[in-house]
Design a binder for these strands. Structure first.
Lengths: 209, 209
DNA sequence: TATTCTTTGTGATATAATTAACTATGTAAT
DNA sequence: ATTACATAGTTAATTATATCACAAAGAATA
């Protein structure tokens, strides 16, 4: 696969395109143009073509793209042609929401390990997954070969959870705790800070006044 | 306030800086340099200074920034010097998680209206807020003057909820449904797609192989 | 007071990303 | 066959963003 630097914005858009293609396919659409996709997801047609051009030629000039084909290609690009095992740490309200989020399963993510410290939660079953005590994190994650960890614990515990996930062999972390984590460069890390999103909105609202 | 185009990345970073400053303040730190902030949040010192330069001069050369001062200034910039009223639509697992998310309250966001269609939920109290039926959305949102709406309903209902929120006078929307919403240009819209974040991770993991 | 040190603020530069324009290639109609 | 048309792929131009390097300004010291 080509490895010249791909903008992250491109990856995010590919993910959006793929969802749009999935819907188009379900509606029975066979062929689609860059303009159709662009309209559907709110970007320019040139942007769609440019994004795809990083990875190859998937269309036919004068015609467009085959929906199923392109969809399959994008899933492949995004690394979604196989199932990813995800370990979720922290079963608070957010953890619970994430564990039952259908969007993950639909896209090939299996949250197959869940950890918490609360004795009332450990041993219970959430979406067919038995909640483990966090003490067993290394053992379980390692044994199951989870590649991705989701951190949904309070900010104060996030770093130590990250350390333990990495020790257990996780290669990527999605962090929901509002704190900057320190991880080795080879570990993929993304932070989702829900308050930040609201603050971008309020900044723009404040500007308008 | 200056209105020359501010990069969104700058706003996001300001939000992160502000949290770091808040912590620094709590630890009793009085003065802080751009380098300190940079180390703390993982960007370059020049970036920190450039971000701040969009909005004025907040530091003292040779010294640094007063933590409390800078923090206050950033909150002001982000529009966080007053409380924002937020209406949450959809009380599934995600909605429930959002409604009880402490990070929002800490930053001055008050989720003071919650809507759902489920009769079992309507009338119950969640974090001291009585859940209303979605039929009353326009009336309640309008009466309470909520400025921000959070959409946490299934993708298929997101557009109609957005339309109704806008009709009720909401000026900004945070959308968690994995779908592209159509809103007038004057409405601020941000989409949070949880699966997209995981897919950026898997893309990078897939590259490494 | 002069000197040195530190760190901000900023103009210049470099890099990255997006948009626009163009070319190549296929389809369909005459 | 030829022509007109549509649309992908690509190169060039533009715009946006980040980095660098240094002058300006204050603090500390001699």
């Amino acid at each position: 696969m080509k490895t010249l630097k791909i903008p992250e914005a491109t990856i995010i858009r590919l993910s959006v395109y793929s969802r749009y293609l999935y819907m188009a396919d379900k509606r029975g659409i066979v062929t689609i143009s860059s303009g159709d996709i662009a309209d559907g997801v709110g970007v320019s047609p040139a942007q769609v073509r440019k994004d795809l051009a990083y990875f190859g030629e998937f269309g036919t000039r004068g015609v467009g793209y085959n929906v199923k084909d392109l969809h399959r290609h994008i899933l492949k690009i995004l690394g979604l042609s196989s199932i990813w095992h995800v370990a979720l740490v922290g079963l608070g309200n957010l953890g619970l929401a994430l564990s039952s989020y259908k969007g993950f399963r639909e896209r090939g993510f299996c949250i197959c390990s869940i950890f918490d410290t609360d004795p009332a939660k450990v041993g219970t079953t959430v979406n067919e997954v038995v909640v483990e005590h966090i003490d067993r994190l290394e053992v379980v994650v390692n044994a199951r070969g989870a590649q991705i960890g989701i951190i949904a614990v309070p900010a104060g515990f996030a770093q130590q959870v990250a350390d333990r996930l990495i020790k257990a062999g996780v290669k990527a972390i999605l962090n929901f705790a509002p704190v900057v984590l320190n991880v080795p460069p080879e570990i993929e890390l993304r932070n989702v800070d829900l308050a930040v999103h609201l603050e971008v909105l309020t900044f723009n609202l404040a500007l308008q006044k």
